[in-house]
């Protein structure tokens, strides 16, 4: 039987939805027994949220002041200590999972499957390479722990309604002191949906031409109840902050609706939006590659079209 340990991602109080998506991936392994591990200073709230996810069999908590901030160097030896007795260790392929899991895999002496996007068997997964242009099926040895990060955009979040048991795990691991948390400068909390999990996203690109102009992206997003994203070019130019970047090296998302405003559509950007159900592209260049993936393309000056759309939605 596959015993799968999923490392919960959280901010100290709320469970990240990406973890619920990793649960869905784990459940697709036949006969899987799924455990979520919560490493935190005070894990109770996050553990409760994890326990109600459908398909979760158990939640274990590792409470320690050292786990107050998620530092890979501190968490990895604890995950390794906990991993004995499990066949798989999963985490979401977010900046948290990408930082932590390779460290865990190396300490375990096993390879890692990054960005698992489809389950082909307990030890067989598909993952994207070359910015999503080549999909590789990989098979890992069944006699070792399999470490994998799960591509969030490929799996729906597990529903609620579960009632897993919660227990405290006794983990003895020597924790390093060579890595210290200093600060986190997060985007101010807003009513806007989170980019990684939003049903609708409006993204702006280089054609916005300034930080001030980028406000029309925010304005349309507000009208639609959408999250805001940006192309790498827009982030590099300082029109939008780094956590809004969508693409190969930013966030990979799968909203119901993705509206690309003034984004030309480099392959590195397209790989981040390919799983969107409906893609709308607004660009004045009819040759822009974004139109190759768009379900609805509008060749127009964005500075005219975007306010018009907003008006039409009023």
């Amino acid at each position: 039987m596959s015993k799968i340990l999923i490392i919960a991602e959280h901010d100290g109080s709320a469970l990240n939805q990406a973890t619920a998506r990793a649960v869905t991936c784990a459940r697709q392994i036949p006969g899987a027994h799924v455990t979520i591990a919560v490493f935190a200073a005070e894990p109770a709230a996050v553990a409760s949220a994890a326990a109600v996810l459908a398909g979760v069999d158990a939640v274990v908590t590792v409470a320690s002041a050292a786990n107050g901030h998620a530092l890979a160097a501190t968490l990895a030896p604890q995950v390794v200590a906990l991993a004995a007795g499990y066949t798989h260790v999963f985490a979401a392929s977010t900046s948290f999972g990408k930082d932590l899991l390779p460290r865990v895999a190396a300490l375990l002496g096993v390879p890692q499957i990054s960005d698992a996007m489809a389950v082909e068997g307990a030890y067989k997964f598909k993952r994207p390479t070359y910015a999503g242009n080549a999909i590789v099926t990989l098979e890992a040895p069944a006699d070792r722990i399999l470490v994998a990060t799960v591509r969030s955009a490929s799996f729906e979040p597990a529903a609620g309604g579960g009632s897993a048991s919660i227990s405290a795990a006794d983990v003895s691991a020597e924790l390093p002191t060579h890595t210290r948390f200093v600060s986190l400068s997060a985007a101010p909390k807003s009513d806007r949906p989170d980019l990684a999990s939003a049903a609708k996203v409006v993204s702006g690109g280089r054609a916005l031409a300034s930080k001030e102009n980028f406000d029309i992206v925010y304005s349309l997003a507000s009208k639609m109840g959408a999250a805001v994203g940006a192309s790498r070019a827009a982030v590099d130019a300082g029109y939008a902050s780094n956590e809004l970047q969508v693409g190969q090296t930013g966030k990979i998302i799968a909203p119901e609706l993705y509206v690309a405003v003034g984004i030309s559509g480099a392959i590195q950007h397209l790989t981040g939006i390919k799983d969107a159900k409906t893609i709308v592209a607004i660009n004045k260049d009819p040759e822009a590659p974004i139109f190759e993936v768009a379900d609805f393309g509008l060749v127009a000056d964005l500075f005219v079209a975007v306010p018009e759309i907003e008006k039409a939605l009023s």
Binding site: V110, P111, I113, K124, P128, G132, N133, A134, I135, V136, T137, L138, E139, A140, P141, R144, K274, I279, P286, F291, V293, A294, D295, F296, G297, L298, V299
Partner: peptide, 19 residues
């Protein structure tokens, strides 16, 4: 121990329309 079983192109998206 990690084996590459198969490499395939991604599924193409259905062709869209220009409004």
């Amino acid at each position: 121990g990690l084996k590459t079983v198969f490499v395939e192109p991604p599924k193409p998206r259905a062709k869209g329309i220009v409004v």
